[in-house]
Amino acid sequence: MKVTVRGESEFGLPKDFEEVELQNPTIESIMDYFHVDPKIRKHLFPIVNSRMGKLSQELQEGDKVILQSPYSGG
């Protein structure tokens, strides 16, 4: 299945949307694909097709995924 992904390049994610093809795409498999450091994974917040997502979420063909480290502050 193909999904498109973007996130913070400092975490190994593509800065602009990049299409990836994965067997059974989950948020976890996306992070595996981009070799996201295990120390940061549980801090990332997924937004899937412009809706709030969950790390445990299973994805569908064509899903657009943003993985971000949430911001709090001034």
Partner: peptide
């Protein structure tokens, strides 16, 4: 959103 993540 920080508190909504497992890590946060």
């Amino acid at each position: 959103h920080v508190m909504a993540t497992e890590g946060g």
